[in-house]
Design a protein around this nucleic acid. Structure first.
Lengths: 209, 209, 209, 209
DNA sequence: AATGAATGAGGGTTCATTCAT
DNA sequence: TATGAATGAACCCTCATTCAT
């Protein structure tokens, strides 16, 4: 009866998380359609049948992965940043994205982009849980910055895309174009440059009193 | 047993293009894996077997679609812009992307992102044909702008991502998040805002003589 | 309008033969199922459609090939051998088979063996046209030899199989086992040895007056 | 939607053998190309998908059939015959072949002949496992017989084909020409006649001291 | 709770056959 | 007469899903 010695007998509460983790890796690696449940199962150390004890089908597993991965990330982000100045917030935001980008979670945007057509439900979920909230957060900060004179008056509802765009590009780049580029992407440098241009672009003009 | 009388009507030269067009629509709509050749065929007004007269298999059809769509677009872009000032170039670039975004071709970036893992060949092809060329074009212009004093000194190699990022975001947004957002994306406004921030961010500072 | 200069415009009477010849080669090379009509057509210098002007379908083409190839061979064989002594006949027979074995026609036995299950009609045809006639010829000669005292009394109806067996084996060997054997089959030596054993086995015993 | 209640009954160890047996029958009946895996599956009492649990594809199933059928037969044959006199060995050999001919295994030679072109691997395998070993066995015995004076001096390397030829013909005949012949082949009589001629042909001549 | 053998629908691919030109 | 583009049925193979154990 002695199982593997290094890892105590896993309780059934642990299983779903292990499966979700394995599934995240697989989905991010190969995409939804190309991911075989057999592989997910093997990676999770169980068999195919076991997956169905916890998730009714592949699509639901996929959704569970997205939900499980995203949900915790967002709550604290808003709170943690409420106290910062607008510029400092943007810096912090960029840094945070940079750090997440290196984890498997960094593969989610690409995955959701790819599957948004076939999983409208997921796309909506992602929109509501991440995109909308994130954009509103940014818009709020930008508005605050404009109101306080830290930033010049701008079209806040669209500047937020300019904030996000280069960061998204970076996240996607690492998982698509990176292997073919002459040099690897220096994400740090991307962040610095992005902030440089962005903050310069938002800075109030001399003439504007 | 009389068949449909309208069999076998068109000419050989037209078919490949019709098939590629149908395939582009299907691939863009559903992704590579979820696209059934039967559907492509039906959309092209032929049967499955006919596809194999022109393309040896699904993967090659996919590549042919990407090639067919991209190749012509690229040559002229470089030339047409050589004469513009740096700022005018960036404006023109943004406008061009905006216009392409509305066509089926605008679905390609998403498609290639999604399939880059399963089609490294395609990803490399896209990198070399589009991404690298495009980025070099932008870098060249930025360098020109910096040299002429139109722009302040910046890290050109990474600013290019800041130029592209928001536009890419716009293209992807239209085909993923658009249906769930409260308001549709005003691409024009995105372009104006992007240029506003970007050009302001690049403008030489007063103190720098 | 000048066609290939080395070969005058082929008339429609030539076509069927050319097709049959091409088909024989293909069928013998790859078997019935693995032979694609496209290949036959190309080999015959025509297109697939043309085949259907002369043969209603693949199966009929196959039968036509077998018929065309076998029919002329048999008539003369009987006549040409009527005058020989029994032993001389057997020698001649063996030599003839050896010569045919080197031509594409030598591939027919294998082909017909392989397809006898799927083409009962062909098998029957081959049986009646070749096998039965051939065996009867041999039986006749053996009977003649026994009657004349050239051979000892034997079970003629089954000795004929002993006459044919080694030759058949040789024909099949060349197209199946030959590539894997250490040394190529010396068909001449096979013939000599076969005749040596066979004729010795048929020779009247000393004691039998 | 209640399915047949008798699903999923047998044990894992039995399946491969059942499938191989079913496949042997199908392949022998119709040939490789004309055999549909669906039929094999039905005959084995399973579905198509199940075949792929045990064999990666049709070609491997085919090879497995050949291997499974041949391998056990060969080991004992050599040993069992080592003690017999040369003549007795030949008799025993002929009898053995006659007995095997009546089983489905008797269909293998024809099958391998037919598919040797498309499955060189199989042909080589059959050559090395069966043909070469068998021929060497026979050659050894013949040599022994010649050395001991039981047989007259002959070209042993080719006499072996004369030993095998009529037996092979018999095996093939039963599965190809039999239905069309006036009388069924009396394999026993074929064996007796073959041995009669062969042994007489090998017997030392009076004059040879 | 977990297994894994078995299923069967679905899609890619081939190729004999047809028929407008 | 000859073409060759087009068809569509057939088959191999995959894999999400089921369920007896």
């Amino acid at each position: 009866m002695p199982e593997a010695p290094t890892r105590w007998r896993r309780r059934k509460e642990a299983r779903p998380n292990e499966i979700v983790a394995a599934a995240l890796d697989s989905f991010v690696e190969r995409g939804y359609a190309a991911t075989r449940l057999e592989d997910v199962a093997r990676r999770a150390g169980v068999t195919k049948g076991t997956l169905y004890l916890y998730f009714p089908n592949k699509a639901e597993l996929f959704k569970a992965v997205v939900r499980a991965v995203l949900s915790p990330r967002l709550a604290d982000m808003a709170g943690a940043m409420a106290t910062l100045s607008a510029s400092a917030f943007l810096e912090r935001l960029v840094i945070t994205v940079r750090d997440v980008a290196a984890t498997p979670v960094g593969g989610l945007p690409k995955l959701i982009l790819a599957e948004s057509g076939n999983f409208p439900e997921i796309a909506r979920f992602y929109y509501e849980e991440v995109v909308e909230r994130g954009l509103n957060l940014i818009k709020g900060v930008l508005r605050r910055g404009v109101a306080s004179g830290e930033f010049r008056p701008v079209d806040v509802d669209y500047v937020c895309y300019c904030v996000v765009g280069p960061m998204l590009l970076g996240v996607l780049w690492q998982r698509t174009m990176e292997p073919y580029a002459a040099a690897p992407l220096d994400y740090d440098r991307l962040c610095r440059t992005h902030l440089d241009i962005l903050l310069a672009g938002l800075r109030p003009t001399e003439a504007a009193p």
